[in-house]
Each structure stands twice: as structure tokens, then as C-alpha cells.
Amino acid sequence: MRKLHHISQKNTKYLVLGLAMTSVLLIVLSLGFGYYRMNIADVFHVITGASGDPNGWIVLGIRFPRIIAAYIIGAALSVSGATYQGVLKNPLVSPDILGVASGAGMGAALAIMLGLNNLMIQIFAFGAGLVAVLATYIFAKHVKFDRRVSLILSGVLVGSLAFSITTMMKYLADTTDQLPEITYWLMGSLSRVSTNSLLVSLPFMAVGFALLFVMRWRINVLTLDDIESKSLGVNTKRDMRIVIVGATLACSAAVGLGGLIGWVGLMIPHITRAITGPQYTRLLPVSAMIGGIFLLLMDDIVRSLFVMEIPIGLAVAFIGAPFFYMLIRRRRKC
């Protein structure tokens, strides 16, 4: 086992500052990527109104919501993954462990089958994600294992159920339009993000982030056994619930906005933990920013590199699988 040295408290401040600056820089640069290329100077000219080119403003208007969406989805998936990994005491857990993503997929498939518009698909997905986690909680009450094990088992059950229902809908779907749309949604893509869809998801993400921010230090105590955290004066049942609600809101809103994007919630917390250590007051903000930067970068690549856009969920999975292999090869304690 290699000796790990996490960065110190002082250096964390510099890291956070550095990541914040990188984020802003990347967002501005990303506004210039795409079919209609602009360099950073052009972007500034358009924003400040100094450019006489009306196209620039339109292009920025189209790109801006998507770029913001990429960043906050990356951030939301990272913090919810980090949070689930903490409260469930398992670094191999992804945000779908309690069924959020599978449930959201089912909701989206249903909305597509009913022929609803994009906004309704997003709302159905978001709602179904929440319902899935609620179902997980209800089932977990009847499972007589340790609290965390019960949640994980129930989450697997609910996720599996949702997946089966989704598959059934794909089977029954019209192969000319419904099936491709469901399949495409399940691969995760930011191409349908509009200002409206972004605005709809923002309040829920904000509440989710706010809850996690409030609990950022408590999560550490929730990584202890129940008997320990209770003896330290923590209302474990209530605090776990608050934290899971926060993570689920953020994650469900993210999936509703961008479809199923896997691996981010698993990988980014891992990478971050190796840098900052497991302390959540550092882990959460840093993983949020690394996640945001990562997904924004991926989206830039996906929409600029090829003529035909690859769904971002696929692109991330191609990176995720080799990364996971590297992780388990190293066997380092995080």
C-alpha cells in the first residue's frame, strides 16, 4: 500500500481558487467552441457588445445554456456520488445506487411513449428519479439488515425494477420514432438543453447543493458506524435522510436535464479523494469543480470533434471503463 499524502488545509484554499479560475476560463473558452468557431477575444467582444456581428450573439445564446448545463451536471453528479459513497460507507457506489438514474430513465421512457414534449420528458424523469429513491427507502424499512446494507439492497431492487420497466417500454415502443428517442435519451446528451430546461432544473439543483453544503461536515460523522455517530450526539437517521434528499435532488435534476450520464459520479469523487482526502468540507467543493470542468471538457470535445455528435454518456463511458481498470489495478486506500 503506497503512503498517501493528501494536500494540506492551506493548499486546499489555493486549489479551490485555481479550480474556480479554471472553471470560469473554460466556460468562456467553451463559448467559442463548435461549428462556428470563435476565439477568446471574439467571445469577449460579443459579450461586451463591441462586436458588430449579430451572429455571434445568437451563437452564444444557443451555446450558453448548454455549457452551463454541462458544468452543473458534472458538479451535481460528482457531489451526489461523493455523498452516497460517504453515507453508504462504500467508495464503489455510484449515484444510481438508490435507483435515481434508473428511475429517471423509466420516467423519461414513459413520457416519450406518451408523446410528450422535451420539457415534460425532463419533468417526468426528475419526478420518477425521486419516486425511485422514495420506493428504495420504503422497501429498506422492511429489510432487517443494517441500515446501509438495507438501503443498498433496496436500491438495487428498485433500480432493477425500473430498468425492467424501461426495457419493456422499449419493447412496446414504436420503432420509427419512440424507440430511437428513448435509446438516445438513455445514452445521455446535452444537445437538447435549452434555456427553459436549464431554468426548470436550477431550483432543484440549488436546493440539493444547499442541503449538501449545510451538511458538509456532518457527512464525515455519517461515515462512522451508527453506534459511534449516535454516541457522538448525531441523530443519524435524520441526518442521513437530509443528506440523501440533497444528493438525490441534485442528481435527479441533473439526470432530468442531461439524460443518463454514468461514471462521473463514481470517478470524480475517487480522483478528488486521492487529492484532498476524505474530509467532506474539502471533498465536496473540489469534486464539484473537477466534475464540472470534466463534463464541460467532454461536452466540448463531443460537439466539436466529430461531424456527428456522440452522446456524452457514451464518451464518458469510454473514458470510465479504462479508468476503473486503472483504479482497481492500483489498489490504493483512498
Binding site: 498517501l4 493528501h6 460517504g86 460507507k89 462504500n90 467508495p91 464525515n220 461515515t223 462512522l224 458506524d225 479523494r273 482526502g277 476524505p278 474530509q279 486506500k333 483512498c334
Partner: peptide, 8 residues
């Protein structure tokens, strides 16, 4: 016990 995560 072995804690879940490597705190200092």
C-alpha cells in the same frame, strides 16, 4: 475497527 475512509 477499520474506518471506511482514511481520515487524519
Amino acid at each position: 475497527h477499520v474506518p471506511a475512509y482514511n481520515y487524519n
